[in-house]
């Protein structure tokens, strides 16, 4: 699609990889259409089943490799929930674990060449973040009643400052889902787009002499960015999960 139009120049299409396309046929995308997003979400579910259900089927005391991966992830998230949200937050561990698994597996599967990264879409991350926001807000009011509003009334500040702080706290509370979702989607999208931009420089060797310098550099840059992206994929899943835990703590113990 790029090559026919401008075969003499480099083709920069860093965002084409994020297009949602129907898997079968070429029709319009209805809400039930099976698209590449569906495919890669399905692959994420399969990977989760493979590691957490098939891998642990042995229930062995001395774990196999896959079972120890599952156990490491389990213990990691369990400890995170317990440390940050407290003992009464452990009830919500499956919910948080679901979020972590979906985001983590989507991020890592998105790093495969030719794949589609579901978490690079604002629509997906916004739903995740709004779910967290609604859960936390409803939970806060259910558990604490009106006392949940004390979250916005900073008692440690001087009395004169408190109304101002309350407004700021209120705004920051409602900005939470926005930053929560855009952080994840933006990080993933930025990394993938940058890799794509570097990749667009790679065919320069076919066009001009300067390509002998640029092409190896671009391949090196792709490799380095890929390494960084592997890190980012893990860290963003971690950050999303840990912020969910922090918000959950606010809902369960709004006093501080």
């Amino acid at each position: 699609m790029a090559t026919e139009g401008q075969s003499e120049g480099l083709a920069f299409h860093p965002l084409d990889q994020f297009q949602v396309k129907p898997l079968f046929g070429d029709g319009p995308i209805e809400w039930y259409t099976v698209t590449n997003a569906t495919l890669w979400m399905g692959i994420a579910i399969l990977a989760i089943i493979l590691i957490f259900v098939v891998g642990t089927a042995g229930r062995s005391i001395i774990p196999s490799r896959i079972q120890s991966i599952a156990e490491v992830i389990y213990s990691f998230i369990h400890k995170m929930v317990e440390d940050i949200a407290g003992h009464d937050g452990v009830k919500y561990f499956p919910y948080i674990f679901t979020l972590f698994c979906f985001i983590g597996f989507s991020n890592f599967l998105g790093l495969l060449p030719k794949s589609f990264t579901t978490t690079s879409h604002i629509a997906v991350t916004a739903v995740l973040a709004v779910m967290v926001f609604l859960t936390v807000t409803i939970l806060g009011f259910v558990k604490n009643g009106p006392a949940f509003l004390k979250l916005f009334w900073v008692t440690s500040a001087p009395l004169a400052l408190r109304p101002v702080l309350a407004v700021i706290e209120l705004i920051s509370y409602f900005v939470r889902p926005v930053s929560h979702s855009i952080r994840l989607a933006g990080n993933v999208m930025a990394g993938h787009a940058v890799i794509k931009v570097f990749a667009a420089f790679a065919p320069l060797v076919l066009m001009s002499g300067i390509g002998y310098v640029v092409t190896p550099l671009s391949i090196l840059a792709i490799t380095a960015m890929y390494g960084l992206e592997v890190l980012v994929a893990l860290i963003q899943a971690y950050v999303f999960t840990i912020l969910t835990c922090v918000y959950l703590k606010d809902a369960l113990h709004p006093g501080h």
Binding site: S179, I182, R183, N187, Y238, V239, V246
Partner: peptide, 10 residues
């Protein structure tokens, strides 16, 4: 550390 980095990076 990671929470702080996430806020700064956002």
């Amino acid at each position: 550390l990671f929470i702080g980095m996430a806020f700064a990076e956002a």
